[in-house]
Each structure stands twice: as structure tokens, then as C-alpha cells.
């Protein structure tokens, strides 16, 4: 039951947000050029660390904006939130 700080709206109840999985997984520049293995990695494989995790959330019941967060998956604590156009804070070790 986190209080999540939307970078646009400020702290709001977790129920207002939708989860979007790992952040910074770019859509491939040229999918056609990828091998089946590499394409499968993009489609199905995501990091799943126990610890800080850069991930995406959307303020679905608020401003409807997507943003990124660093959250510790052990404690669920949000360590950072940042806008899509901001760089990932240096504190996390995950890709």
C-alpha cells in the first residue's frame, strides 16, 4: 500500500496507478534485423531482480502519464520517481 509520488501530481494512493514492468527496455530500432532469439528476448524476457528495480508506472486514475520509478522489490519501497524524459538516477544497479 505505497504512497506513490507521481512526478506530475505528487503523492497519491497506489490504487490510482497501473504497473508497467521494467523500464528502459527500448523497442528495437529494426526488429526485422533481429534473430528469433533476440526478438524473443525483447518480447518475453524482463529483469526480475530482488532489490532495486527500474520500472514503469502509469498514473491511470490521475493524469494518465507514464513515469519511471526505482523501487526495491523486497520492501516495495519507492526509492526514486522520475519522468520518462529524465535519465535514470545513478543509485540503482539494475539495467
Amino acid at each position: 500500500m505505497q504512497l506513490i509520488s507521481c512526478p506530475w501530481c505528487g503523492p497519491r494512493e497506489e490504487v490510482e496507478f497501473h504497473y508497467g514492468g521494467q523500464a528502459h527496455v527500448a523497442y528495437p530500432d529494426d526488429p526485422a534485423a533481429l534473430s528469433d532469439e533476440d526478438w524473443a528476448r525483447f518480447v518475453f524476457f524482463r529483469d526480475n531482480p530482488s532489490g532495486p528495480f527500474a520500472e514503469r508506472w502509469s498514473h491511470a486514475a490521475g493524469c494518465r502519464r507514464w513515469f519511471n520509478a526505482i523501487r526495491d522489490t523486497r520492501s516495495h519501497e519507492l526509492l526514486d520517481v522520475y519522468r520518462m524524459d529524465e535519465a535514470q538516477p545513478a543509485r540503482t544497479g539494475t539495467s
Binding site: M1, V15, H18, Y19, S50, T73, R74, H76
Partner: peptide
Amino acid sequence: DSYNGYGQRGSFH
């Protein structure tokens, strides 16, 4: 629960 979590706890809602 929708998010990844290793904490063996979920959200009460």
C-alpha cells in the same frame, strides 16, 4: 498483485 515483489506481502486493497 500487479507489481514485482519479493516481500511476501501484497496490497490490502
